[in-house]
Simulated assay, not measured.
Amino acid sequence: MTPALLFLRSREVPGGLLFAVPAMALLAWFGAAQTHPSHAVTTAALALALGTAVLGYGLGGPDGTLDATAAIRWAPRRALHLAAIFVVASAVVTAVTTAPVGIVLRDAAGFVGLAAAAVVLFGRRLVWTLPVVVGCVSAAIPAVPEPFALYLLTWAGQPADSVAALVTAGILAVTGVSAYVIRGPRRISPVS
């Protein structure tokens, strides 16, 4: 088996794709069937949050200590893995939703950054926490400009012309991706 296939199997990527792709497509399709354009945006954000949460599980291996002792360069693999999650999530949701492509790309970048930050902070078992919580908050709370803290918290549901949402997603993406590429997942030994 090639090293790439071994890496994908060890990170449980095939299983993640098997569940994430249909779930994202179905959720985005439900939003596309709605008549109001804001519903398409919020369901696209939820679909991206769900997809990055499921695919993010593969950002860490089953044994963090084993990953740390491997004599390979992890930074390029980590960066490529995050880029692949971004591409898959963006492509699936863009193919199904009626939300603008700019919103999908912005939200995908932000959610990938959140998943990367979650795996650094909490480990792979809790990688779902940050994307799912932010996605649910953005879907549940209407996009209103005041108070500004709430406006920033609901960045994923903001319209395409929202500079604050774009900056927030960019900061989340850069911070999370940088932390993950440099530091890697939180090292948690497997439960015996």
Rank of each mutant, 00 (worst) to 15 (best):
V93E: 04
T168R: 00
A89C: 14
Y151P: 05
A84G: 11
I103G: 02
G110Q: 10
A109G: 15
G110W: 03
A95C: 02
V88Y: 06
V93M: 05
V144E: 12
A83W: 11
L150N: 00
A75P: 13
G51K: 01
V101K: 04
L153H: 12
L126S: 02
T168L: 04
I72A: 14
G64M: 05
A83Q: 07
T168F: 00
I72L: 15
V132C: 05
G157W: 00
R106S: 07
L105V: 15
V104N: 11
A79R: 02
P159W: 10
P145I: 03
L153T: 14
G157M: 01
G61H: 00
T65Y: 10
L82P: 11
A109P: 09
A118F: 06
V93Y: 02
G157H: 02
A75G: 14
T69S: 15
L80Q: 05
F111Y: 15
E146Y: 06
L166H: 12
A143H: 12
R77T: 10
W128M: 07
L66P: 03
F148I: 14
L152A: 07
I141D: 09
V163Q: 11
G110P: 12
A99W: 05
E146F: 09
S138L: 07
L55V: 08
T65P: 02
P62H: 11
V163G: 07
R78C: 00
A149K: 01
T65N: 09
V120S: 09
L82N: 10
S90Q: 06
Q158E: 13
T52D: 07
V92Y: 07
A108Q: 09
F148H: 04
V112I: 13
T129V: 15
L152M: 05
P159Y: 11
P159R: 14
A79N: 01
A79K: 01
T69N: 03
P147C: 06
V134L: 13
R78F: 03
P100T: 11
V101F: 13
W155Q: 07
L114P: 03
V88F: 08
V92S: 08
L166N: 06
P145H: 05
T52W: 03
R125S: 14
A75H: 12
A109Q: 08
L66C: 01
F122T: 08
A118Y: 09
P131N: 08
G58C: 02
V134G: 04
G60M: 06
S90L: 09
R106T: 07
V120N: 09
L114F: 05
F122L: 15
V92M: 10
A91M: 11
A149D: 09
A91L: 15
V137H: 03
V93G: 05
L121Y: 05
L82Q: 07
A71L: 13
G123N: 09
W74P: 07
A140Y: 03
R77P: 01
V167F: 06
V93P: 02
T168D: 00
L166S: 15
R106A: 10
P131W: 03
R124Q: 14
L126Q: 02
P100K: 06
A99R: 04
A165N: 05
I72C: 13
